[in-house]
């Protein structure tokens, strides 16, 4: 109890969100409001949230563009799949390792990127993304066009992606996957939030805002850009590992330019340089199209229109709605109290 009192408002908010994330899906499922397919979409959205956090560190915080992040997702997915399938390494070790492999490749990409800015960096990362998946498609190791089928994780040798019957309650394999994703999403946010609150994160932002002032303050621009590329690729690689095991089938062609552009859009639409913006962006780009999916042929058109509307009316991204709604609430509150006085 005394421990609870010590919690700040920020911690309380996080605790509530955490509890909701844990309890809501099973409650909605038992009420029949959450069907299998939509649970699957939520799981993928969670995976993409990890990508969005990783890409936002690079794009929103460090100011370095990348239109090739699907490649890191591919690198993570295939690394983790191969570690599990060929070497028999445990899922829980394979996924972080996939993140590390992706990070190393991200740092290698970061080196030539040091000389490039703006549009040129965009084109270079785009080329990298296209080349990586092209090379992978032509290699036997990655299953070629027929791809690989990564298995689910095991705990004490037991498969966990299963449907369960818990005291008469049905728990789907998708819900189990959801909790695995939730663990990784939670850790991602924790680590990213820590980094942006400390020297490393501030060095990123300093580079974004003024490279010459950052240099004058002793920030080694090259070093921090490479770290940013590495971190960004690390998170995206972890997301890739998860992605493969969750979907259960991966082919290099899944990780195409369109996916990279989607990731880019998630950041711009959610809010550059904001971790919550990464959440909103991932939700917007993955959940909204599903809501439109009932309409024949129209989902892409409606989605396009939605993207245009957001960029037109919310130039800072969806995250700016937070302060706007807060202001409206305050105004309403003020009017209500005025009325009650009058």
């Amino acid at each position: 109890m005394s421990n609870l009192k010590k919690l700040t408002d920020q911690h309380k908010k996080m605790l509530i969100i955490g509890i909701l994330c844990i309890l809501l899906p099973p409650i909605l499922t038992s009420l029949g409001l959450l069907q299998g397919y939509f649970q699957y979409i939520i799981n993928i959205t969670g995976v993409y949230m990890i990508v969005a956090v990783g890409l936002n560190l690079l794009l929103g915080y460090t100011g370095q563009i990348s239109i090739g992040h699907a490649a890191f997702l591919a690198i993570g997915a295939f690394t983790s799949a191969l570690l599990v399938m060929k070497l028999g390494i445990n899922f829980w070790i394979a996924v972080p390792l996939a993140g590390l492999v992706s990070a190393v490749i991200g740092m290698i990409l970061g080196l030539p990127a040091l000389r490039l800015h703006g549009h040129y960096l965009a084109i270079a990362t785009l080329g990298f993304g296209v080349a990586i998946t092209q090379i992978m498609s032509n290699m036997e190791l990655f299953g070629g066009y027929s791809g690989l089928m990564p298995p689910g994780p095991t705990v004490f040798g037991q498969e966990v992606w299963l449907d369960y019957n818990l005291f008469g309650h049905f728990i789907s394999g998708d819900l189990v996957k959801y909790y695995v994703v939730l663990i990784f999403v939670g850790l991602t946010f924790l680590v990213a939030a820590n980094i942006i609150k400390t020297r490393t994160g501030r060095a990123f932002m300093a580079i974004r805002d003024s490279e010459i002032a950052a240099m004058a303050m002793g920030v080694n621009i090259s070093k921090y850009k490479v770290i940013s590329f590495g971190l960004s690729a690390f998170f995206t690689g972890i997301a890739g590992g998860l992605f493969g095991h969750i979907v259960g089938f991966i082919s290099p062609t899944d990780f195409h330019l369109g996916l990279s552009l989607n990731f880019f859009a998630m950041i711009v639409i959610g809010g550059m340089g904001s971790l919550r913006g990464a959440v909103y962006g991932a939700i917007f780009m993955n959940i909204i199209p599903e809501l439109f999916s009932g309409v024949q042929h129209l989902p892409t058109v409606l989605m396009g229109a939605a993207i245009i509307l957001v960029t037109l009316f919310l130039p800072g991204g969806i995250v700016t709605l937070e302060s706007k709604t807060l202001m409206i609430f305050r105004k309403l509150k003020g009017q209500l109290s005025k009325r009650s006085v009058g």
Partner: peptide
């Protein structure tokens, strides 16, 4: 040449960049 999207406090924290001992 201040950092535009960082608070004044964050600006002055970057000013102390070289004084920090901890790493990533």
């Amino acid at each position: 040449e201040l950092f535009k999207n960082m608070t004044i406090l964050e600006n002055l924290m970057v000013g102390q960049h070289i004084n920090f001992k901890t790493g990533l």
